[in-house]
Simulated scan of single mutants.
Amino acid sequence: MPDTPFRMPAEWEPHAATWLAWPHRRSDWPGRFSPIPWVYTEIVRAVSRHEPVNLVVPGPKTQARAAKLLATVGVDLGRVRFFVLPTDRGWVRDSGPIFVVDDAGNRVALDWHFNAWAKYPDWTRDDKLPAFAAAQLGLPTRQPTHRGWRVVLEGGSIDVNGRGLMLTTEECLLSKQQERNPPFDRSDYEAVFAAELGVRKVLWLNRGIAGDDTHGHVDDLARFVTPTTVVTVVEENEADDNYAPLRENLDRLRGFTDADGGKLEVVELPMPALRVYDGMRIPASYANFYIANGVVIVPTFNDPADRRALGVLSELFSGREVVGISCVDLVWGLGTLHCMTQQEPAGSGAS
C-alpha cells in the first residue's frame, strides 16, 4: 500500500493549468534558435484553448516579446499568466514541481532536487522553480528526502496511471552513468515513490531511446494513456540502434500486470526515421506527447510515420483533439512537447 494519502494524478485527469517556460537559452538549439519561440507560440495556442497556461519568463523584456508573438498567432492572452523568474533552461517537465493531491482535492507541490540530469553544472536557477511556483499558487510544498538524502527526480523519468502504477527505466534511475541518487537502489526508489506519489507498483523498463541526453527518460519511450493501457515506441528497422532495446521493452510490457494484478493492454507507436545533427543522434519520438484538457499535442517530424502516430493516438484519445505540432526544429534541443510542459492538476486549492 502507498505510504501517503496523496497521489500523483494521471496526466489525463483534469488540469488547473499547464506550466511552461519561455525559451531563452540559445545554446540549447545551436544555430537554430530563431524558429523556437514560434514553435512555443503554437504549443501555447493549442493548449490555451483548453486550459490556462502559466508561462515562466526570465524578465519583463522577455515577457513583452513573448506576449507580442503570442498575440500575433491569435493566442488569447487572458488565458496566459506570466511569472517572472530567471531560469537556466526551459525544460519544466524536469525542473518544475510535481503536484500531488489527496481525496479531498488538497494539493501539494513536491520540490524534488534538480541537478541538470546529473550532467551539466548550471542548474541552481532551475532548482528554485518548484518552490517559486508553489509560492505563487499559495500551495504547501515539500522536499522529498530518503535516508537523509534530498531526492533528485525529473518528471520525464516517470509516468503514472493515477491508480498506483508507475513506469520508469533502469537506465535512468539505476545506471552509474548520470547517476542522480548514488545511495539508492531499486528498493529505495520504490519506497520514495510509495511515500511521495502514492505508487503501489513500479514497472521497470530497461533502456530509453538512442540519443536521449537524459540517459533513459521514459517519456520518450512508453506512456500510460488509460489506467490499463500503455503506448510504447517500436523500431521496425532491424539495423537501427533502437531495434533491440525497444523490442525488449515491448516484451517486458506485455508481461507486466497492473497494481491489482490485471493485464495491461500494450499499443505500439512507430518511430520516426533517424535524425542526426553534427554527427549526434537526435532523440525524436512520438511518445513525447502531452495530454491537456480536451487536447493531446503530438510531436511531428515531417516524417512518413507522422500520420501513423497521429492515427494511433487519435483512436486512443477519441474524446480529445489530437493536434500535431511540428518539432523539426524543437527536437534539436534534445527534447520536445512533454519535456517542456508540466501539468498542474485541478484541486481545491488556489490556482
Rank of each mutant, 00 (worst) to 15 (best):
P5C: 03
R7H: 12
P14M: 14
W19G: 11
A21P: 08
R26G: 04
S27F: 04
P30A: 02
F33V: 09
P37T: 08
V39E: 08
T41D: 09
R45H: 15
A46E: 13
V47M: 15
R49T: 08
R49I: 02
E51M: 06
P52L: 10
P52M: 02
P52Y: 08
V57C: 09
Q63C: 11
R65D: 12
K68E: 15
D76C: 04
R79A: 12
F82R: 07
L85F: 06
R89S: 13
R89W: 08
S95T: 09
P97K: 01
F99E: 01
V100P: 05
D102E: 08
D103Q: 11
A104P: 07
V108P: 03
V108D: 10
L110R: 00
L110T: 01
A116M: 05
Y120R: 07
T124L: 07
D127L: 01
K128H: 07
A131W: 00
A133W: 12
A134S: 10
G138I: 13
Q143D: 01
R147H: 13
S157R: 03
S157D: 07
S157F: 09
G162R: 11
R163L: 06
M166G: 03
L167R: 12
T169E: 02
C172P: 01
C172Y: 14
L174V: 02
S175N: 11
E179Q: 15
E179I: 11
P183H: 05
V192W: 01
A195C: 06
G198V: 03
K201W: 11
L205H: 09
G208E: 13
G208W: 02
D212C: 13
H215D: 15
G216P: 03
A222Y: 10
R223H: 00
R223E: 00
R223W: 00
T229R: 09
T232M: 10
E236F: 02
D241Y: 10
N242K: 05
N249S: 02
L250M: 08
L250F: 06
R254A: 05
F256P: 09
A259N: 04
D260I: 01
K263A: 15
K263E: 14
K263W: 08
L264V: 13
E268F: 01
L269C: 00
P270E: 07
M271Y: 00
P272A: 09
V276H: 02
Y277E: 11
A284L: 03
I291L: 05
V296D: 11
I297L: 13
I297V: 15
F301G: 00
N302F: 02
P304Q: 12
A305N: 13
D306H: 00
D306K: 00
R308T: 10
R308W: 02
L310G: 02
L310A: 05
G311R: 04
G324S: 13
C327S: 08
G333R: 05
G335W: 08
G335K: 12
G335F: 03
H338V: 02
C339K: 01
Q343H: 11
Q343R: 10
Q343G: 14
E344S: 12
E344T: 13
P345F: 11
G347C: 03
A350D: 08
S351G: 05
